[in-house]
Design a protein around this nucleic acid. Structure first.
Length: 465
RNA sequence: GGCGCCAUAGCCAAGUGGUAAGGCAGAGGUCUGCAACACCUUUAUCACCAGUUCAAAUCUGGUUGGCGCCUCCA
């Protein structure tokens, strides 16, 4: 199993810190709004990573934080005249609604920054003791020049950074690259007591602290959006490794951006879509399936056309599995027939392509194509004449693989009420009598109720829209 | 200015040395009373130039075009 490590800029074989376990930390959202389609990508893609590790038999300890103290949250709270807690409480709920809808499993731990303040203060104290941090008038800064590896993740050279510093140099800092670990309270802001006075933690610090608390000093995978490489992840490495004296994360994974018209989404360009808006038109499953169509590190464009293509592709998979289910229910023979051994082998060979793709840095585009090939295999080779053994094995395999990428298939028994059953029977009678006008009338009537009838060689099937 | 990524059919997208997966859309066909589903057929020499090699979309150099990070950001 190989994955691309931003730290080394290479695909590496995954070797866990602790046998059989995967400790992963994914940077979570700042909760002051519903998530947008771009936020959804790391949620979905790293959920796929997690599911694949679990499928491979690993125990995954998955941590995703909520940043619940931040300038934007405070601003929003002030605008609405409510407390910061009311805002964060509200949007954590909203984020969880979307995450659940998108098929994202709940993390093992979902720590909130405001609930980890003592541990943060503790880490700052350690950094000051080790002379990696310094206090100036209630602010504490990390001394980047003291940390030898600064820049190793992003490939940036501290000298270049210093020379190109665009931000106005804060005179309190010893070096423009230094970043804040603790910031003093301003009027009207929430604050916590610390050895450096009332204040609140810097953003970068929280992830270092929460990763350590829930996963230990050296974790397997740290993940997030590609924009977090610098400065956020670079700073996390500096803090954690300076404080703990150990490597922070073995593997760094970064997802590419979602663009609109090949441009980064931004509110000013007016090309900004929240998941909630999209769900009005395309279901959550389609959003997820759309994300799977490209490799997680590539940038992808978001558009209605692509969502429609994803809708149709997903439907093809769902129809295929429904047909398998129908065939299984109507097949006559139970045991695998002698003549079916070749087919069984063919099916398993196709399924192997899925694992091969996922083993190669979670190539979901290729993995999905393996699912499509299995669907075609089923549509072509599996019928009611096939043995139940082969139908079931094929169906179970497709369902299992779909579950790994979090594509949910509606498989619960869908029962029709007597009235509808009756109408279908009437239509069948009408067709037998070649009274197609009546047959079509009944079909239209049922279509009005959202039940689409399809006459196949194997009988009448229905689906709901 | 510094660092980095990308360029494959109408659209999306795998493939990183041996002569182009898969999906969507289109066209034609089979099946069907019709429709739908499904199946079959059909659409590329991989931005451009030069080089390395028996062999390159795949390696090297260059050109052009697009994008990202360097500031809060998934």
């Amino acid at each position: 199993m190989k994955l691309y490590n931003t730290l080394t800029r290479k695909k590496e074989t995954f070797v866990p810190v602790e046998e059989g376990k995967v400790k992963m930390y994914v940077c979570g959202p700042t909760v002051y709004n519903v998530i947008h389609i771009g936020n959804a990508r790391p949620f979905i893609m790293f959920d796929v990573v997690r599911r694949y590790f679990e499928y491979k038999g690993y125990e995954v300890i998955y941590v995703q934080n909520y940043t619940d103290v931040d300038d934007k949250i405070i601003q929003k709270a002030n605008e609405e005249g409510v407390t910061m807690g009311e805002i964060t409480e509200r949007y954590i709920q909203e984020v969880e609604t979307d995450a659940k809808g998108l098929g994202v499993k709940a993390a093992t731990h979902h720590p909130k920054a405001t609930e980890e303040i003592p541990e943060m203060i503790e880490m700052i104290e350690t950094l000051i003791e080790k002379d990696f941090a310094y206090e100036v008038d209630g602010s504490v800064y990390f001394a980047t020049r003291r940390f030898e590896g600064y820049g190793k993740l992003s490939g940036k050279n501290p000298d270049d950074l210093e020379a190109g510093a665009r931000i106005a140099v804060d005179s309190a800092k010893r070096n423009p690259m230094d970043f804040v670990l603790w910031k003093p309270k301003k009027e009207g802001e929430p604050a916590w007591t610390s050895p450096w006075g009332e204040g609140r933690p810097g953003w970068h610090l929280e992830c270092s602290v929460m990763a350590k608390k829930y996963l230990g000093e050296t974790i397997d995978i740290h993940a997030g959006g590609t924009d977090l490489v610098f400065p956020h992840h670079e700073n996390e490495i500096a803090q954690s490794e300076a404080a703990n004296g150990k490597p922070f994360a073995k593997y760094w994974m970064h997802n590419g951006f979602i663009n609109v018209d090949n441009k980064k989404m931004s509110k000013s360009l007016g090309n900004f879509f929240t998941v909630r808006e999209i769900v009005d038109e395309f279901p959550y499953e389609v959003i997820r399936f759309f994300m799977l169509s490209a490799h997680y590190r590539s940038p992808i464009n978001f558009s209605r056309e692509l969502m429609e293509a994803a809708t149709n592709g997903l439907e093809r998979i769902q129809t295929g599995v429904k047909n398998l289910k129908y065939n299984l229910a109507h097949a006559k023979e139970d045991a695998l027939k002698a003549a079916e051994h070749g087919l069984q082998k063919e099916m398993l060979t196709l399924a192997e392509k899925f694992d091969t793709a996922m083993d190669d840095d979670f190539n979901t585009a290729d993995a999905v194509s393996a699912v499509f090939e299995l669907i075609r295999f089923a549509n072509t080779n599996v019928s009611v004449e096939t043995s139940k053994a082969l139908i079931k094995e094929t169906m179970d395999k497709i369902i299992e693989l779909c579950d790994v990428i979090g594509v949910t298939l509606e498989l619960e028994d869908d029962l029709l009420d007597d009235e509808v059953e009756n109408l279908i029977q009437q239509r069948q009678d009408a067709r037998k009598n070649r009274d197609f006008a009546l047959a079509d009338q009944i079909r239209d009537e049922l279509a009005g109720k959202g039940i689409i009838l399809e006459d196949t060689r194997e009988g009448v099937k229905f689906r709901r829209v």
